[in-house]
Design a protein around this nucleic acid. Structure first.
Lengths: 219, 219
DNA sequence: TTCGGACTTAACGATTTTTTAACTGTTGCA
DNA sequence: TGCAACAGTTAAAAAATCGTTAAGTCCGAA
């Protein structure tokens, strides 16, 4: 069985774009274009995760979220809001409405995908037990041996990327594109420095170099 | 591991549409919008099947197909042409170029999918479980007797080439062209050295020398 | 504004990978 | 047998790549 994701946005183009990428990753995807429909679909579809646009005509995302939260069948369902910048102050309302994450618009698909993976991985094993290193996106912390480790943004993003798919090799290009974005240009050694800091913090053995290819995370 | 399909068409809409359906069926999909790019992508992606549009600006499908056929690494790769009616006479040229199937345009997605499944005989696992040596491109690992063996880039590429078609002999020229590329020039003994390292790692018997001809992999 | 952490760069060192080159076997055949 | 063509082996050089360190810059919080 794969994870079910309910995608809610009033723009069909966005639905299609995100949907395409989610399906590609093996998720089962449902969608709705307004709040009322979203609540109804959620009750039927019982998604593991709802990606919920905040700004929608009629019922907005927060309201829809609150209504979903009233449904006990959706108790374990995660909700992530899709929101434009400048609405930062509304995050408070979002978390009050029961948000598990916030994903900024305009959507960078790679960011979205890695967050989705992170969220659902968390849901799979709420305590994160069984893995040597645990990542908590919501709290933006990394835990190892019960110790919380502070981690700046870039380091966190990098670890998150590798950690999401243990064993998979990420090329430097993939890492740049995912952590820095395609338009930013940084020097060759930048990744190495961040890798070094990660190794200092979570231990040498978890991050493996494959020379000429890339890096990967191993438990 | 799933089958890899390379999709080549100059219309992004068609790419997206077919891609969506293929991915939904669990295939790994790569794409290109022109012949030259297709040949390059194929060399890297090593698809099991190429869906190739005939009518493209610049290099057409037949030409691209011929160029792919020159790459020994793509020997086992299937090619299906996507072609409009009225071009029936051109089928001759297509099969001469090395086509395995013809799929008529306009594309009916169900027809396409069933042909693709038929070509790839779905259900057969391309990952090669049960083989003495298993290769995982994603993890960049080689497994033998449950042991993971580290392997540098060139060695890995070389083994990957031979391993893809057990029993088939690859000439030195083919190996150079595939692993090093046509423009790089290296000395005669370079291959031998890499072969030796591979033999050290996966065992003598798996790589067989055919004097005056080339090398092959055997399980 | 000042401070400190985050991020990046650049220089250099270290390591691993890849190639070369010299030498050694092997095979087939005149 | 002895030659010629080809492949195997080895060590070491060369190249590529990565790691480390010590700055410098930037930016936000106090």
């Amino acid at each position: 069985m794969s994870y079910r994701i309910l995608l809610v946005d009033d723009e069909p183009d966005i639905i299609e774009f995100i949907s395409y990428n989610l399906i590609k990753e093996g998720f089962e995807v449902g969608h709705a274009t307004n709040g009322a429909d979203a609540v109804a679909k959620a009750a039927q579809f019982l998604p593991h995760l709802v990606l919920l646009d905040v700004m929608m005509p009629g019922m907005d995302g927060y309201r829809a979220c609150r209504l979903m939260r009233e449904n006990p069948a959706l108790d374990q369902t995660l909700v992530a809001f899709l929101t434009a910048r400048g609405e930062d102050e509304s995050q408070i309302e979002g978390f009050e409405a029961g948000a598990d994450d916030y994903i900024p618009k305009p959507i960078k698909i790679k960011v979205l995908m890695s967050r989705v993976r992170a969220l659902l991985k968390r849901g799979e094993d709420p305590s994160g037990e069984g893995r040597a290193v645990q990542i908590d996106r919501t709290r933006h912390t990394v835990a190892k041996d019960g110790q919380e480790i502070a981690m700046p943004r870039k380091e966190f993003n990098l670890l998150e990327l590798l950690h999401a798919q243990p064993g998979r090799v990420f090329s430097r290009e993939e890492i740049f594109s995912s952590v820095w974005g395609d338009d930013v240009v940084v020097g060759d050694r930048t990744i190495d420095v961040h890798i070094r800091k990660l190794r200092e913090k979570i231990g040498e053995r978890h991050i493996v170099t494959i020379k000429g290819v890339g890096y990967k995370y191993e438990d």
